[in-house]
């Protein structure tokens, strides 16, 4: 560059020049665009998401029985209740001692009152409750003594919430989709 002799370093480039800000901002943008795939690759992948929903044939569950299936790595109870068990659940719909007040109608399968689909994980610390046990004949968690009624609601013991009802769609008279 045929300039007159310049003392080097005497004229620092103006840091606040717009072009520098623009270039740095664009570079930061590129960095962000590179970082995003590196972060999102840890999110569930295609094959994991494919098993996010499963279909189940509820006609396989006999009267008064429960079947346990695996969904998203967790146990799911599909219970075909007897009319007495349904009645007992409905009787306590507005019981004053319910920690998490819910009616049986809000929890059972729409259109199929005897079927109950619940995530089989105690809401206390995650053990799998046993069916039919406890003072209400619903479920009993042996770990710390939580009692659930025939609608899966917590009645006694340290668990804070009712057994969770997962997202369910009724596909046909015999088929449901969980998740």
């Amino acid at each position: 560059m045929a300039d007159t002799a310049v003392q080097s370093g005497s004229e620092d480039p103006n840091r606040r020049d717009f072009i520098h800000i623009a270039a740095i901002a664009a570079a930061a943008g590129a960095g962000g665009m590179l970082a995003w795939p590196l972060v999102t690759q840890m999110n569930p992948s295609g094959d994991t998401l494919a098993l996010a929903s499963i279909e189940f044939d509820i006609s396989k569950v006999e009267d008064g029985q429960q079947v346990v299936i695996k969904w998203r790595g967790k146990p799911v109870f599909v219970r075909n209740r007897t009319p007495e068990q349904v009645a007992a659940a409905e009787k306590d719909d507005h019981a004053p001692d319910l920690k998490e007040p819910q009616t049986d109608a809000e929890r059972r399968l729409p259109g199929k009152a005897n079927y109950l689909v619940l995530i089989g994980t105690c809401t206390h610390l995650g053990c799998v409750p046993t069916v039919g046990g406890g003072d209400w004949g619903g479920w009993f968690c042996p770990c710390h003594g939580s009692h659930y009624d025939t609608s899966g609601r917590i009645r006694k013991g340290p668990a804070p919430k009712n057994l969770v009802v997962p997202e369910i769609a009724v596909l046909s008279d015999t088929k449901i989709k969980i998740g």
Partner: peptide, 15 residues
């Protein structure tokens, strides 16, 4: 953009 920034930084410096 980076090239423009580069030219601006070096504009008064012999290279």
């Amino acid at each position: 953009l980076v090239y423009a920034s580069y030219r601006r930084v070096w504009r008064n410096e012999s290279h």
